[in-house]
Design a binder for these strands. Structure first.
Lengths: 251, 251
DNA sequence: GGTATTCTTCTTGTATACAAGACCATTGAG
DNA sequence: CTCAATGGTCTTGTATACAAGAAGAATACC
């Protein structure tokens, strides 16, 4: 493989292109609805057209971009309704995952792992004067918690589908993380969410499938309400992950 | 674009490759676990490596094949547990879709369309001496019913996710279609399923979200039971759509 | 002056060339 | 006879060349 101007030579060109493009879209460098020219992506990513094209196909499957009838791709534009629906989908999937974990039982080691994660989150949100750094750490830990939850199901099919349900960045738990500067009650939100995290783990441990399911659905409803709040506070919108994709107002 | 030995010149090479490969996998021409050589696919499909590669990437996202660490792709092998899980995922997604349709309300035209579909199925399964042809027609109509149901939700995000949930061929409604030669009660199964179809439409019409959700979950449980039956009857296995992908017995 | 048309340019879809790594077999040594 | 090393072949990942189509601009015609 030809490697000339290659910063990180351990990763394939396709992966590099995929990461670059995803970042360009999520960061808002490419506006929703904007057509993605392959050549310009070649310039921006430093890889050739072939891997760029691969990445585009993957991103289309992922749902971040869509094929244009006349050829090529454009950044998908999501409405607020789309975001809320994505959260609901995620809620349904995570409810199913939690139920499966509860009904089928989980290994001691998997349970220990997710309990560790719970403890880490507890520790993180314990102080009352949270900074923006705390929040970005929380996003990471929260994502880990949800990934571990998916794995508790023990079903590759469910894990895959649950992860796909979170493909829309808004559906991800980070969707409801709002900077405390705008919303002083942000920590409270995190505390409530963490409560639900704890409850679902307990429900799984005591084999209460129905309850585990209900908790995760409620968890999604919480995320929905919080995102709604953020969207109403125009000023905080930019702090919501992936907000660059939301086409608001008209249309 | 270079078009020499092109039978159907209206369709792009990539689509042709995608359809060919999917068919090769689902028909069992490529065994589960088997490595897919790009060159051999070039021979079999008559298109060049580039579109073949595109199709491979798409099929990987779709979940029918998986990347090999050392490079290339292999046909994914599914266990029976995978299939059952896929059906459960589909049940959860269709429950959500039905609930959304009920809670949000549907247009008169959409309702008319799905009622038409219901009527067509009624007509098809009315005679008591169903042949194999009836069954394959049923598979088509049934798929249409489920697609129409998804659309009733009115949510592009949910539609997309629901369709993706059926990516595994076993999760599809056709999964429980069993030839009447082996299972004389096959028609009964279809009648029961159709009853559920009718009930969910009624529930949606009368805005009973909870009930619509429950019906679709039960519908999935029915599919699960029927597939179980088919799997127990070794002889009928070959008649289950996509059965070539199921790795049974050992492992 | 406005509209239709043609020409140019750009962009994508496809094919192919090339190089790096993987797999396999053969061969040589212990 | 067994095991390891080495060579060759095959396969994939990447880059690039080429042709068909689309978008846009300039021009000619009404």
């Amino acid at each position: 493989m030809t490697r000339e101007h290659d910063a990180d030579r351990s990763v394939s060109q396709t992966v590099k292109a995929l990461l670059s493009l995803r970042d360009l879209i999520l960061s808002g460098a490419l506006r929703p609805g904007e057509r993605i020219s392959e050549l310009s992506m070649v310039e921006r990513t430093g890889v050739s057209r072939t891997p760029v094209r691969m990445a585009l196909v993957r991103l289309e499957e992922e749902g971040l971009i869509e094929a244009i009838p006349s050829g090529g791709f454009a950044v998908k534009a999501f409405t607020e309704a789309d975001i809320f629906d994505a959260i609901e989908v995620r809620g349904a999937m995570e409810g199913l995952v939690a139920r499966a974990a509860a009904e089928r039982g989980v290994s001691r080691s998997a349970l220990a792992a997710i309990r560790d994660c719970l403890a880490e989150i507890d520790e993180l949100i314990e102080p009352h004067d949270l900074t923006l750094d705390h929040f970005s750490d929380y996003v990471r830990l929260n994502a880990r918690f949800h990934a571990l939850l998916h794995e508790l199901s023990g079903s590759p099919v469910m894990i895959r589908q649950a992860e796909r349900a979170g493909a829309l960045p808004f559906a991800s738990p980070s969707g409801f993380v709002i900077a405390q500067s705008s919303l002083p009650q942000a920590r409270t939100i995190l505390v409530v969410a963490q409560d639900q995290h704890r409850c679902v783990v307990e429900a799984i441990e005591s084999r209460e499938g129905e309850r585990a399911d209900a908790i995760m659905r409620e968890h999604a409803r919480l995320a929905r309400r919080n995102l709604q709040l953020a969207l109403e506070n125009q000023s905080t919108l930019d702090l919501v992950a992936g907000s660059s994709l939301i086409r608001r107002g008209r249309r």
